[in-house]
Structure formats: structure tokens, C-alpha cells
Design a protein around this nucleic acid. Structure first.
Length: 380
DNA sequence: CTGTCAATAGTGACGTGGTT
DNA sequence: AACCACGTCACTATTGACAG
């Protein structure tokens, strides 16, 4: 994704929240008229130093983000008004603060009566099908496991139970092991260390390649994935079924702690007004619903089932993120090209290793939630 | 040709170690 | 002791590959 698209995407969150407030005002269901302030936040975001975008750039460079918001956001507010008759609403962008707290939400919805707030994750998909199978979390092998073992309170950081109100980084082996020892769970330490070792192995095997070699990467993937699957399943065995289930629900944004507003140009699913989402939450928590984790190809598959049918499932493919280690833009080129590698200009052939960025090769996990199969869109 | 599974590259946060 | 440059880690939405 290029820079313009990234800016458009971030700006689209401000725009969507502005549009919510504007719609609420027009419908007479705004707690306070505050769309002007939200519009200003949107404009400020576009105009921020060294960016200098005009409002028209937002709608022209990657038009789908604005078009999707225009198509879906007013209808969301209308659904709110139906779901909470007589209530009024307010909206605020709070993405950065919430993300740094390890939350997924992008904006806060306030309802006056009954008085409460909702932290909502907004996903505005441009590509086809994304909304049907949203990616709700990602990380490295270690951070994926650590999310089940520890209490997450930020990106890659966790609550340190040894001292109140402090955090530790999951990547810090000394702290990680000390926390586990403190909690009497030292049996988890070698399992987490194994995941660290797999990442070290990936680096030592791939950093020697001057040119990108897909077969070599796939070879290393094939080596590490079965080990990672077994290690993660061992972690889950030690933690126990109930802990894994609860942590999975948190991670998949299915525990009810935060809400969702996912849409593309054609489809939407929001967890606040959609009864199918409510039914999904209810079925997940039904005592007759079972939860399991199994290996499925390169993935771990998490699934809830009732009466022999899948209620909801999620796949977590385990792979390597080469993280831009080799410079191979499209289309390929002949000769050498100047590339700024972590701030340092270097002359590179197509497919040649970037001296600095290559240090960031890492193990990789993504959690894809099969929302379409869960029936929240009205099909299947 | 499409759906499914997998892989990608840029980026922000944070820690660390060097320099004044 | 404060600052800052730099490296590492983790995270996201999108694109790619390939089977059927």
C-alpha cells in the first residue's frame, strides 16, 4: 500500500466519524452539534505538516474510501436511531489512544439514554471480499502466543504482575521468564523461547541470501510451521481450554468488550444494531457450544460449533513476513535503482537484499475471522 | 475465473546506547 | 541527565498465488 492510500485510509476514519455526527445532527438525534469540530479534525489531518492535502485530494486519490463511507455511514446512524428510539448520540475519534492501550477500537460512540459508551472498531474495505473475512489481529509467533499467556496492555507489551501499573515487553526474555517464574508458570518459558528460536532460525537462514529466493523462503516456512503449530498447541494445553477460549474471543473482538463496524461499498456488519451479531454472541456463549483449536494446513483453526454446525471460525496462518527484506517493486526492473532503506539511500538490483530492512524479517501470524460463514451478512 | 489461503511492505512505538 | 539517533518489534489492510 502506498503512502497516498495510507493517508486516505487514515483520513477516512476521521471522515466517517464526522459523517456520523453530521447525519445525527440532520436527523435531530445528536447529543450536541459537534460535526464542525469533527470536520476540522478531518481537515487538520489532511493538512498536517509536510502533507498539505486539500479536501479534494481525499476524494480523488483513492476515491473508494470516501465512497464507501458515504454509502454506509449514514445508514449506520439510521440503524442506531431505530435500535435506540428516543436516544441521542455523540461520536469521537480516539484511535491513537486506544491503539496504544492495546485496543482495536477507532472511535467512541456515546448514547445518552440508556447512558453508555461503545468503543468501536471501524474497518472500511476497498478490496473485494475483505469485509467477509476481516483480519482482526496479527503479530509474530511470539506475540501471538504471549497474547494468550499474559494480559495485553499495548503493542507487544503486557501487564507486569510483579509491580502494580507497570508493563513488560514480551520480546524481553529476561522479563518474560521472570514474570512466568513469579506466577509459578515457569513451564511456559521454554515453549515461548522455542517461538523466539524459530524467528532466530528464520533470520539466520534467510539473511544470507543476497537475492530473493521464493523457494528458499517456502522451504524455511515448511521447516518452522509444524514446529510452531505444535508449540502453540502445547502452550494452549498448559493454559487450559477455558483460558484459551476467553483470550481467543478477546483477540477476535468477539467477547463483547469492543464493538465492530465493518463495511465495504456493498455490505456492512455492525455489532451494535445487527441482531445477527447479537445472536452470534449468544451462540458463542451457549453452554452447548464447543470450542476447539486444530491444525489446518499451515494454520491453526479456532472454531465454535453447536449441533455439528460451525457457529464461527477463524484461521491463523503461520508464515514468514519478509517485511520488505528484498527490494522487488512491481514491475521488476533491469540494472540498479536507488532505494531509501530505513533512511539510508542504497543502489539495488531488483530482488536484492536491503541491508537494514532485512533485519526485520520475522515470523508472522494473522487472525482471519470468517464473518460471512457466521451468517452476519444475512446469507448462508 | 473465483474463492481461499497465504504473504507482503510500510510504519509507529519503544528501548537502548552513544554523545554532549 | 538529557537528548537523540538508531535498531527492533509488532501491527494492519491489501495483494498475490494457486487450486478447483
Amino acid at each position: 500500500m502506498d503512502r497516498d492510500q495510507h493517508i486516505t485510509q487514515d483520513a477516512a476514519e476521521f471522515y466517517a466519524v464526522y459523517l456520523m455526527a453530521k447525519t445525527a445532527e440532520e436527523m435531530g438525534v445528536a447529543i450536541l452539534p459537534h460535526s464542525k469540530e469533527l470536520w476540522q479534525e478531518f481537515v487538520d489531518y489532511l493538512a498536517i505538516a509536510h502533507r498539505d492535502w486539500a479536501i479534494s485530494d481525499f476524494g480523488s486519490r483513492y476515491p473508494a474510501y470516501k465512497a464507501n463511507a458515504d454509502a454506509q455511514v449514514p445508514a449506520f446512524v439510521q440503524r442506531l436511531a431505530v435500535a435506540f428510539p428516543g436516544s441521542k448520540f455523540a461520536f469521537e475519534v480516539d484511535e491513537a489512544r486506544l491503539r496504544n492501550l492495546g485496543k482495536k477500537a477507532d472511535f467512541i460512540l456515546t448514547i445518552d439514554e440508556p447512558s453508555r459508551t461503545y468503543a468501536v472498531s471501524l474497518k472500511n474495505y476497498v478490496g473485494p471480499g475483505g469485509v467477509k473475512r476481516p483480519q482482526v489481529s496479527s503479530g509474530t509467533f511470539l506475540s501471538f502466543a504471549a497474547g494468550f499467556v499474559f494480559e495485553r496492555n499495548g503493542v507487544g507489551t503486557y501487564v507486569d504482575p510483579r509491580t502494580p501499573d507497570t508493563s513488560f515487553k514480551g520480546s524481553n526474555t529476561k522479563d518474560r521468564d521472570a514474570v512466568l517464574a513469579f506466577e509459578g508458570r515457569a513451564d511456559l518459558a521454554p515453549l515461548l523461547m522455542k517461538l523466539v528460536d524459530l524467528q532466530q532460525h528464520v533470520r539466520s537462514r534467510l539473511l544470507t541470501l543476497r537475492y530473493y529466493d521464493q523457494a528458499a523462503v517456502k522451504g524455511v516456512v515448511a521447516e518452522i510451521v509444524p514446529q510452531a503449530q505444535d508449540t502453540l498447541l502445547s502452550v494452549f494445553d498448559v493454559l487450559g481450554h477455558d483460558v484459551v477460549r476467553q483470550k481467543f474471543l478477546e483477540r477476535a473482538n468477539l467477547d463483547g468488550g469492543e464493538d465492530a463496524l465493518y463495511f465495504d461499498g456493498l455490505q456492512f456488519a455492525d455489532s451494535i444494531t445487527n441482531p445477527r451479531f447479537r445472536e452470534l454472541y449468544a451462540r458463542i456463549n451457549d453452554p452447548n457450544t464447543t470450542f476447539k483449536v486444530v491444525k489446518a494446513g499451515q494454520s491453526l483453526r479456532f472454531s465454535f460449533e453447536a449441533n455439528g454446525a460451525v457457529v464461527v471460525s477463524a484461521d491463523v496462518p503461520l508464515t514468514i513476513n519478509t517485511n520488505g527484506a528484498w527490494h522487488r517493486p512491481k514491475p521488476p526492473y533491469q540494472g540498479k535503482q536507488l532505494k531509501v532503506d530505513k533512511g539510508v539511500p542504497v543502489e539495488l538490483e531488483w530482488g536484492e537484499i536491503r541491508p537494514r530492512k532485512s533485519k526485520e524479517i520475522a515470523t508472522s501470524t494473522n487472525l482471519y475471522l470468517d464473518l460471512a460463514a457466521a451468517g452476519v451478512f444475512g446469507g448462508s
